[in-house]
């Protein structure tokens, strides 16, 4: 299906994209001057275009149904969804799967524990011990739970704030839009990890919440830009025009017509943001700015603190959480990119 709005930015005939990652990063050699801002123009242009792409649909339901149908035929999506599904299952049923309590110290493990030797696999503890004599396997399993918690919460906070800013900017337009978008520009002007570090430094001491908050704020400008672009495209669309002609109140047009139709792109972005969030949380732990709670079993924390400190003594303490993070981040990225491709109307047949 060819749509005048989406096609406007891409006058070239395209072949269908069948690979993950070939759907994004669209080059626009003839990009109009309008979209040239202070920074991140490509990023912004891409976000705006994605927003338009998902907004350009006339019937929201059929787009979603169509996207789901295409997702189910895409092996990349299936692999991504399987990883994500398994991860969520492990997180939910951690108490049933894990052989031991993740915070209990075992005498048979602590008695062999020294500064430069941490016991490996023994009977009853197939992954061996962590630096405090706790069952490493159980901590890995419970780690899924905490990692999911941090990732989901950070993504939700970032999404909510971003959607709020984007919706206000998109609904009001004018100077409100200009001011809010300048604000997102400033946030984008700081490299993401530096912004997170700056935020963590504001708290007198770090906790799990400073980490979640810092990681969440980093994603706010991305969500805000995405939603705003989508809302602006909706403004001009036929169904909004029709609603306005019928005399529907402006508030209802925004809440009932523009917002719901703009959310698809945001949900896709949330999937990708989750991967970034757990990677950033791990980075903060690595820098010594993470959660100071020694009982908390979270992969980023395990990799960033114990994995770093005992890398020479027992590298498994780094390998297992790292592997878990890589696989889960990969799963969310694959799923997110497959979804992004599926909602792109250019790929509709």
């Amino acid at each position: 299906m060819s749509d005048p709005i989406t096609q406007a930015g891409a006058p070239t005939p395209r072949s269908g994209n069948d690979k993950p990652g070939s759907g994004d990063d669209k080059p626009r050699p003839g990009m109009s001057e309008r979209s040239i801002g202070v920074l991140g123009d490509r990023k912004k242009a891409r976000l705006d275009e994605l927003a338009r792409a998902s907004a350009s649909d006339r019937g929201g339901v059929s787009l979603v149904r169509d996207a789901v149908r295409r997702l189910r035929r895409n092996p990349v999506a299936i692999v991504g969804a399987s990883i994500v599904g398994l991860f969520i299952l492990v997180a939910i049923f951690a108490p049933l799967i894990a052989p031991h309590d993740p915070v209990q110290r075992f005498d048979e493990l602590t008695k062999n524990l020294t500064v430069d030797s941490i016991p490996g696999a023994t009977a009853g503890h197939p992954f061996g011990s962590d630096p405090l004599g706790r069952d490493f396997l159980s901590r890995m399993i419970y780690g899924a739970r905490q990692t999911l918690f941090v990732g989901v919460l950070a993504t939700l906070i970032g999404l909510s704030l971003g959607v709020l800013i984007g919706a206000i900017a998109g609904a009001f337009g004018g100077w409100v839009d200009v001011v809010l978008m300048r604000l997102t520009d400033v946030m984008l002007a700081l490299p993401s990890l530096l912004l997170a570090i700056t935020l963590v430094a504001m708290a007198s001491r770090s906790s799990q919440w400073t980490v979640i908050f810092a990681v969440a704020i980093v994603s706010v400008p991305i969500f805000a830009r995405l939603l705003r672009g989508s809302m602006l495209a909706q403004r001009e669309s036929d169904h909004v025009l029709a609603a306005r002609a019928l005399g529907v109140k402006e508030r209802n047009i925004v809440l009932r017509h523009m917002l719901p139709n703009s959310l698809t792109a945001v949900i896709v972005q949330a999937t990708l943001t989750f991967a970034v969030a757990i990677l950033d949380a791990a980075a903060l732990s690595f820098l010594g700015l993470g959660d100071p709670d020694i009982n908390r079993a979270e992969w980023g924390l395990m990799l960033g603190v114990d994995g770093q400190r005992y890398f020479e003594v027992r590298p498994e303490l780094a390998y297992y959480p790292a592997l878990a993070i890589i696989v889960v981040a990969l799963g969310f990225t694959l799923l997110g990119e497959a979804m992004r491709e599926a909602i792109d109307p250019k790929n509709r047949r």
């Binding site: 990652g21 791990a282 980075a283 980023g300 770093q308 790292a322 890589i326 981040a329 990225t333």
Partner: peptide, 13 residues
């Protein structure tokens, strides 16, 4: 995809 998903400090180590 792997490059994007790997924590780079871990890759460094």
């Amino acid at each position: 995809l792997l490059g994007i998903s790997i924590p780079i400090f871990f890759l460094g180590y």
